[in-house]
Write a protein that binds this DNA or RNA. Structure first.
Lengths: 419, 419
DNA sequence: ACACTTTTTTCGAAGCTCGAAAAAATGAGC
DNA sequence: GCTCATTTTTTCGAGCTTCGAAAAAAGTGT
């Protein structure tokens, strides 16, 4: 509960450096006075810290400020774009996207390629990932600026330390230590995380009013992914990325799922499940190749047009999602739901069964109160953006000095005592 | 005014006071040198802080120390029992238990009474609760010592601020602002929390090696409750106590549950569900009166003796729990499970179907790896103990000065910036 | 008694934040 | 063009805190 951490004298300064840096990242270019108000630190402290940070080449003064007022003009402090670069990458079904982002958060280069993730050999996959990133880095705008972090997002389960892919439906290869590999190849600290866990960062930054500190992001695509923001923190499992909403059981012993088990939510609501149901294929069968977004859109058209198997497919999907959300909300409390991915565009077909199922599981809580919102931006762009954000905020902590000195040794001692 | 200036610096001292206090609470009587090692603070700092805390009447020197060694003998620092008193209370089905605990954690007085929670009027319930606590307080051992906190645990859903009972299966009355009422009556800060959320504290303290920072406590009694310790913190919902494992859907549209809905886990695994199933009553029916522990034990005897409806009842209960844990573990990752309550004594009957269901939901993860442990101590005692612990650790923070003084304004500002 | 060992306290140095006052940099007015 | 008003930013001394080293304290062993 009261998660006090041991702070030594010098750690105090590091913490406040971090506070200032984060304030600039969240609020954009900001004058010292505004920073003092926002951080509640004194003007003198802000002055000292910002001088340090400018000296470190992390912040820079940008004359761009509101003119025309009386008095000494404000000097806005902004993130120095050339302070660092980060790589953000997303490996999803048959697709690899990478982007190079500067310290201020601007995309400097981008690549993407198609690849047969489900069938390619382990070594080919690794080679392609590293070569794509190598190509990307070679396009760096300022040769002097170092690439400081790689944020690698994957559709699949990663370990709690964000170092390996444990299992994924998009590739038969498990326990792939991407972080070790990329760190060895590029000498850059790397985190490997579930795609939906990165996506939530982008949602939060994109609309902080709507997606503040508690919300659910549901990715409806070939599979079903979830990202959970609780109390301002992305929810992680203790051993893995967890949050496997798509593999919560909907029907004990039900339809066959990609994961090899039966009755998972995904086995009713994933693209392939929609296709299977709409085409009247047996629920034990797995489609050989990926169901494309275009194919799902065809199903949507048909479902909207007339009663029939397509409409039933979406209805069953909505029911599965609704019951799943009911179980989730029983465990964590209701929260606004952001729907992302191709399936989100079918929300008109899904809403009724979702709300119906929710009403059956969360009875009293008037189900109209549950807020759903369809996010228009493509999920891949959101995930890449979220990955960059994650890399940059982690980097902020390191640059401020919090991560390097204060946390590792001491926090364990304090945490053990304070639980 | 003193609180307005030098906030940051003061804050540092307050945190370290808290750190020292917590170290003594967790580790028991401890010498200054040992404290310095554990907290990683310097000897000088420990010396200064402990002098302060002794001066405040919070700690005391106890000569009880390991003798016979060379050198200056250690002086153990212990919690001063008379520094404060706390009340811990538990309202469960037809039962109210209260205890008075001193600052060192020793029970000084205790009471319990039976009461018809399901049928009594709202005002009668409130009167009985207050009068029991009033009687308890009158038994205080040191009239000078103040009662500083009341921890009120309830079988039911409480609000996230720990102030009200929102809904409970043990009483028809909802939205009962127990915290406001008790604070008004006794002038003592009060928290109202779910019983299982308190219970986990006692488990953790009772066996820190086994129940460290990640585990699940499952209370199998008339209903099914759950307490979740994740990363060393008790999991709370954002609006309510949440963690309503018993009301996760097991079978859409299935057996009737006390909560008024259908197919909840509790409707298969609660005492009343066992009774209903074993006696061949229809799954739509609700038993009129509570099923006693003795009755459940009779079912267990019968189930162990021969094949029949009793055995099937336990089998179905285990299946429901197993699937529920499967869903839970898909969302939060597997963790050791502590089984508490009358139903836990039937673990021999439940284990097989639980593991079977788990194997179906969490496929690969060899289900033998899931650790279950039956806790012998009665759940009521555990919950009371946990409540006291919770009250005392909260009080520690307040006494250290972390909660009371300057923090509120800043921590929100910093939290908003640092997310 | 005296030496040895271990714990605890004392003391000065260094660092941090803070509030107040000074300095800087501009617009407004004559 | 000069001065005054206004707002931002820096400077400065005071008051904390923590830390390391040295001193003091309080026993045991011989």
């Amino acid at each position: 509960m009261a998660s006090a951490m041991l702070i030594r004298q010098d750690d105090l300064r590091l913490r406040n450096r971090h506070l200032v840096l984060s304030a600039v990242r969240v609020g954009g270019a900001t004058s010292r006075t505004a920073l003092a108000n926002r951080t509640r630190l004194s003007h003198s402290t802000i002055s000292a810290i910002s001088a340090d940070l400018i000296g470190d080449g992390v912040l820079c003064e940008s004359p761009d400020t509101m003119q025309g007022r009386r008095g000494r003009p404000q000097i806005a402090l902004a993130l120095q774009p050339q302070a660092a670069l980060v790589v953000t990458a997303l490996l999803s079904l048959n697709n690899l996207s990478v982007a190079l982002v500067d310290y201020a958060g601007k995309v400097q280069a981008q690549r993407r390629c198609d690849l047969p993730t489900t069938s390619m050999a382990r070594s080919d996959l690794l080679d392609l990932v590293t070569s794509e990133i190598a190509e990307l880095i070679s396009a760096r705008p300022w040769p002097a600026a170092a690439v400081r972090r790689i944020a690698f997002a994957i559709q699949g389960v990663t370990d709690a330390e964000a170092r390996s892919l444990l299992w994924s439906p998009i590739t038969p290869h498990g326990d792939v230590p991407f972080a070790d590999l990329l760190e060895a190849r590029f000498g850059v600290q790397t985190t490997v995380e579930n795609d939906c866990n990165m996506l939530v960062f982008a949602l939060q930054q994109g609309d902080p009013a709507l997606y503040r500190s508690n919300f659910v992001a549901l990715l409806l695509s070939h599979g079903i992914g979830m990202g959970l923001m609780l109390r301002g923190e992305v929810f992680h499992g203790t051993r893995s990325s967890a949050g496997e909403f798509g593999h919560v059981t909907h029907q004990p012993g039900g339809a066959r799922c990609r994961c090899g088990r039966n009755g998972c939510i995904e086995a009713y609501a994933g693209s392939y499940a929609l296709w299977r149901r709409a085409k009247g294929l047996p629920p034990t069968e797995m489609p050989e190749k990926a169901v494309s977004d275009a194919q799902v859109e065809d199903l949507m058209v048909a479902a909207r047009e007339r009663d029939g198997p397509e409409r039933e497919a979406f209805h069953e999907a909505g029911t599965a999602i609704g019951y799943g959300l009911g179980s989730l909300f029983a465990l964590i409390d209701p929260a606004p739901v952001a729907l992302v991915g191709i399936g989100a565009t079918a929300f008109d077909l899904l809403e009724e069964p979702i709300r119906e199922a929710l009403a059956r599981t969360l009875g009293g809580q008037r189900s109209e109160a549950f807020s759903f919102r369809v996010v228009e931006r493509p999920n891949m762009a959101l995930t890449l953006e979220g990955g960059a954000l994650h890399a940059l905020t982690t980097l902020d902590a390191e640059i401020a000095g919090v991560a390097a000195s204060a946390l590792p040794a001491r926090s364990t001692a304090a945490a053990a005592i304070l639980r």
